[in-house]
Simulated assay, not measured.
Amino acid sequence: MLHAFRLAMVSFTDAKIRKYLYLTILLTAIIFAILAFAMDGLIDWGLAYYGVEDSNIGAIIAALTLILSLWFLFRAIAVAILWVFADHIIDAVEARYYPIRAATGRAPTFASGISLGLRSVGRMIIYNLLMIPIYIMLLFTAIGPAVAFLLVNGLLMGRDLEDMVAFRHQLDDKDMGWRMPKMQRLALGVMGTAALAVPIVGFFAPIIAISAATHLLHRQQSGH
């Protein structure tokens, strides 16, 4: 896996991948700016509605709510955008390292990428909403909620990354030779999810993760 991540880091020397990195950062920044503006207005309205007049209390509540909400939403936004550009990134990695596989890949339509991205985000939101009682119960352990969050979202992200490559090559669950070992897939997803939580690094994380997944699946299929 470490070798796959090293190869993924090298991917940024490819002009095509850098292009999609810039597009990812731009789109993420635009979406976050819109969400921040909308949420700030919603919080101000909520505080006024409930008669919270203390400006300091209001500012603290607004800041904490905004930070926590955007931190949680960052992964959802990043994965949704990644689904839109995933095929282009996989194609660039395959063209450089696995040209035979690149020739057999089929690019999904833009609409398919959007649809799959929204489906992935929906799963992530539903799973995390279902996990809220467990997150709350684990608060007394200090790191419990973070560990649970990483495991749940790592599991979801690992499957998403695997599916992105499988979708390009029209593979399904019957093609088990293309599936990563479960622990490897979980480790990949956890590393990707953890990286998304790190400022600045989070912008690079989705591209590194999908590049690493491409290397892992192709190298496994070829017996390396």
Rank of each mutant, 00 (worst) to 15 (best):
M1L: 08
M1E: 08
L2G: 12
A4G: 07
L7R: 12
D14R: 06
D14P: 02
L21H: 09
T24Q: 06
I25V: 14
L27Y: 09
A29E: 03
F32K: 01
A33N: 05
I34P: 00
L35Y: 03
M39V: 07
M39A: 04
D40T: 07
G41C: 00
L42K: 03
I43N: 02
L47S: 03
G51R: 03
V52K: 01
E53N: 11
D54Y: 12
N56Q: 08
I57H: 10
G58C: 10
I60E: 12
I60Q: 13
I61V: 14
A62Q: 14
A62V: 00
A62P: 07
T65R: 02
T65D: 02
L68C: 12
L68Y: 14
F72L: 10
F74N: 03
R75S: 15
R75H: 08
A76Y: 06
I77R: 05
A80G: 08
W83S: 14
W83G: 03
H88D: 15
H88L: 09
I89F: 00
D91F: 04
V93F: 10
V93Y: 11
V93H: 09
R96S: 15
P99T: 10
G105L: 05
P108T: 13
L116E: 08
G117Q: 02
L118K: 00
S120A: 15
R123M: 14
M124G: 05
I125A: 09
N128A: 00
L130C: 08
I134T: 12
L138V: 11
L139P: 05
V147M: 12
V152N: 07
R159Y: 13
M164K: 06
H169R: 06
Q170L: 12
Q170S: 14
D175S: 06
P181A: 07
P181R: 12
K182H: 09
M183K: 04
M183T: 15
L186Q: 08
A187I: 07
A187W: 13
L188D: 05
G192I: 03
L196Y: 07
P199E: 09
I200C: 04
F203A: 08
F204R: 06
I207H: 01
T214Y: 09
H215G: 01
L216T: 05
L216R: 04
L217Q: 12
L217M: 15
H218D: 04
